[in-house]
Design a protein around this nucleic acid. Structure first.
Lengths: 188, 188
DNA sequence: ACAATCATGTAAGGGGTTACATGATTTG
DNA sequence: CAAATCATGTAACCCCTTACATGATTGT
C-alpha cells in the first residue's frame, strides 16, 4: 500500500542517459551534437529526440555525471558537456553489466502480414511494401558506411550488423514473394 | 498558434487498436483472450498490455468498430467482443494501406556494442550476452512453432520470419566473436 | 537577402508498462 | 483447501515525439 517504489534500473541510468553518456565519452559535445550523432549512427536501433536530450542533460549534470560549460561560438548560446569521473564510472558500470533490457521491435509490416488472412489478396503487396522499406533503410545504412569508414570499431561493427540484418530481411521478402506468388497466383 | 491538431493517423486506428481489431477478426474475444494471444504470437514484434487493451476496447466500442456483450462463465464477469461491419471495414482499410510506420528497434546490446570502444575488454563478453538473449528468444519461438503448426498462413509466415531472423543474429554473433577473438586475443 | 545550419529549450499529448485491487472458477 | 488461471479494470509513472518559440551565424 502507499507509494509505488519505482523499479530501480540496474545501472540507475535512464535509456536516454545511456546514449548521452556514451556519446560524450568520445569527446565534448553539445546537446545539438548528440542529436546529430544519434541520427547519424544509432538511430536504426536507438533513437533520441531533443525533448529527451536537453532535460536529461540537466538531470545528468545535477547527478554529477557530466559537467557543462559555456563555450559560445560568436554570440551564439552554446553549452559543451564532458564526463566527470563519476560519469565515466557510471558508463563503465553499465557497459560491464551482463544483463540488458531485451531488444524490442515494433514492426507494422509484420503485423499486417500476421493478420493477412483477413484479406489474403493484400499479402504479397504488403510484403512488397516491407521490402521497399527495408531497401530504403539499406541505402541509408550504406550511405553512412563511407562516412564511417575510419570510425571506431564499435561504430563499424554495429553498422555492419545493421546492414547484414537488413540484407537478410530483403532476401527473406524476395523468397516469400516467390513462394506465395507460385502456388496461389491470384485465386485461392 | 493555439490548439495543436493531433496528427491524424492514416487509418484512424491507434497502434493497440490495430492489434485488437486483428485479433477479434478471427473470432469473438475477451480482453484477457487478446492479451494471451498477443503474448503467444505477436509479442516478438508487437506487444500490448492490459493497461492499453481495456481502455482501447472501450474506445473502439464507443467508435462503433467493435461490440461487446456479457457472456459470464458461471458467475464470472466476462465481456466478449466481435467486429461490427464498420470495424471489419476499418481493419480492411488498414490492411489495404501501403504505407506503414517504419519498423522501430530498441536494442541495448547493440548500444553497448556501439560504445564498446570505451571499454574494449567488454566487447566480446557483450556479444556473448547478446547471443545468449537471442538463443533464449529462438527457443521461445521454436516452442510456439509446434503449437502454431496448423495455424493460419499469416501466423505461420511471421513466426518463420522471426525464427529466421533470430538464427541469422545468432550466426552473426558467432562470426563476430570468432573474428574479434582471433586478432586481439587480450591486448590491442 | 535569404536559406540553411547551429543551438537551446519547452509544452502538450501519445502511447506504453507495472503494479495493484478485486473476485470467481478450476485443478491438483 | 491451496494454487493456478480466468477475468476486468485503474492509478501512477515513464518515456518519447512533435511542434513550436527563439535567435545567432554561415553560406549562396
Amino acid at each position: 500500500m502507499g507509494a509505488v517504489q519505482p523499479t530501480p534500473e540496474p545501472s540507475g541510468l535512464s535509456p536516454t542517459g545511456k546514449v548521452i553518456l556514451g556519446m560524450i565519452a568520445s569527446g565534448k559535445r553539445t546537446g545539438y551534437d548528440i542529436k546529430r550523432l544519434v541520427d547519424k549512427t544509432t538511430r536504426h536501433f536507438w533513437a533520441a529526440s531533443y525533448g529527451q536530450i536537453y532535460p536529461e542533460l540537466k538531470r545528468l549534470e545535477a547527478d554529477g555525471l557530466i559537467s557543462g560549460r559555456a563555450e559560445p561560438s560568436g554570440g551564439r548560446h552554446r553549452r559543451v558537456f564532458e564526463l566527470t569521473d563519476a560519469g565515466r564510472e557510471a558508463l563503465h558500470d553499465w557497459l560491464r553489466s551482463d544483463d540488458s533490457d531485451p531488444s524490442e521491435l515494433r514492426d507494422e509490416g509484420m503485423l499486417k502480414l500476421f493478420f493477412s488472412d483477413a484479406l489474403p489478396e493484400r499479402r504479397v503487396p504488403n510484403i512488397r511494401a516491407m521490402r521497399a522499406r527495408e531497401q530504403r533503410k539499406l541505402e541509408q545504412l550504406l550511405a553512412l558506411q563511407e562516412h564511417a569508414a575510419g570510425g571506431a570499431p564499435g561504430m563499424y561493427t554495429t553498422l555492419q550488423l545493421g546492414i547484414g540484418a537488413t540484407r537478410w530481411m530483403i532476401e527473406w521478402c524476395d523468397a516469400a514473394i516467390r513462394d506465395l506468388s507460385s502456388h496461389d497466383t491470384t485465386q485461392e
